[in-house]
Amino acid sequence: MRSQLDEWRFALTSKFIPAILIAPLLVAALFGYMFQNSQINEAPIAVVDEDNSIYSRQFTEKVNASQYMNVTDVFYQAVQPDTLLANEKYIAVIYLPRGMEQLRYQGKQVNVGVLIDNTMPSAVGNIRNGIQELITIENLSLSVGKLKVMGLSDESAAGIAAPISMQQRLLYNPTSDFIGFMVIGFVNVVALGITAIATASIVPRLRVEGTLAQALKRPLGLWLRVVPYAVITCISLLLAFGMLKQLGGLRFAGSATAFVIPLLLYTLTISYMGMLVGWSASEPSKVALRTYAIVYPSFMLSGVQVATIIFPYPIQVISHMLPLTWLFKFIRGIGYRGGSLSYFTAEIGVFVLMIGILSLGIGLMIMWEHRKMNVKTGMEEIAA
């Protein structure tokens, strides 16, 4: 109990409180504001219209009518795409071939060229979808018009021209909102780094203060010293999620009360991980570099930037050893999909297993410290 009071007192009076409370909130506010626009609309497009006919101009107007594209310039002679795309003035170039209108009336295929600058893949997804939708609608309307001339009804003509139609619906993040994966990832990585450094400093701090030997006599009290940091980090993340919901429109459909349970298990897990990583450091100032072994892999492999399924199998195995990977499963499962906590008993079991393994590691470190102290005492007795 005394060790808990000492650790709570230290946590509340140290720089941990302003760091863990302010940093995630600042990241949430800044990135929530920066990425409040969930998709790119009115992307600049250049059209090279070599036909310069009534139909090609109508087609250009349809491209410009799309919410995803803005035709900023039209060229009526051939232009090299490298020239147009070199300085990022345009994201894509659409080529309308010479004889486009004539080919249309003859019922022949018209090849429309679409060249997209894919150096920034996240910027062109909607452009590809917008152009594909436009081409599909244009083909359907032309086919239906020809069939209606043959005496078919609108319904029959549409059935022959497009017998199968697709009705697509994007679930849980219909606008591909950056808040829901990239921003929430940055917030969690920042909180992870601050908490890992704070908990990694516990044992080195006790060693410098000369109270580690006394703390080792009560292993349970030493093991519980991470609780203040886990609880405060849990509160900080809840506040950051709330800010993202209010400022950035974060979609959280599940029960916040149910989400607290896996969130607290996660913060306990990273706290014990930090304690174990920093245990053997001689002083608190030397633990920061050690925590990079937790933070950097978590940033790269836990699903902050890309889905973990894209990794080779051995990397996926490493990814599943990271607590942040499992937290994202809860964020997506409970927060975005609105799932019940009862759906995630296996994932909760993973956190419990991680805490058990890390606690075993801490127990081994306690035994190692006792052995060191016994050896030191024996050498002192021999020297005396």
Results as ranks from 00 to 15, higher is better:
P97G: 11
V47I: 12
A288M: 05
D49N: 02
I232H: 02
A346L: 13
I310H: 07
M365Q: 14
L206I: 07
M354P: 05
V63G: 12
T377I: 12
R225E: 11
L238F: 14
D51I: 06
L206T: 01
V277K: 04
V187T: 06
Y272K: 02
V48L: 09
L327R: 02
A191L: 04
E155V: 15
N111W: 08
D73G: 07
W368D: 05
T72A: 13
T136W: 06
I137C: 00
L244R: 02
G338E: 12
F328P: 12
L103Q: 06
G107S: 10
G180C: 09
L5P: 01
G254K: 04
M273E: 01
P297R: 07
Q214Y: 13
R371A: 03
G185R: 00
R9P: 00
I20V: 04
G335R: 00
I202L: 10
V190A: 14
M166W: 13
Y229W: 10
N173F: 08
I20G: 05
L237W: 08
M69K: 06
W8N: 00
K148C: 06
G113E: 11
A200R: 02
F330I: 10
R218S: 01
G335W: 03
I261R: 00
P163I: 13
G32K: 00
I315F: 10
R169L: 11
L5W: 01
A215R: 05
I20W: 03
L12V: 06
L171N: 09
N139M: 03
Q39S: 04
M300H: 12
L238M: 15
Y343T: 08
R98P: 03
P314A: 06
S302V: 09
V203P: 01
E380A: 15
A11W: 02
G335Q: 09
N188P: 00
G151F: 05
Y292N: 05
L171I: 10
R332E: 14
V144I: 14
A19G: 05
Y90A: 05
T377Q: 12
R290E: 08
V114L: 11
T325Q: 08
L324H: 00
A256M: 15
F16A: 08
R104K: 07
S56E: 04
S285M: 11
V114S: 11
Y336R: 14
P81T: 09
E7I: 03
L224A: 15
F328I: 14
S122Y: 08
L26V: 15
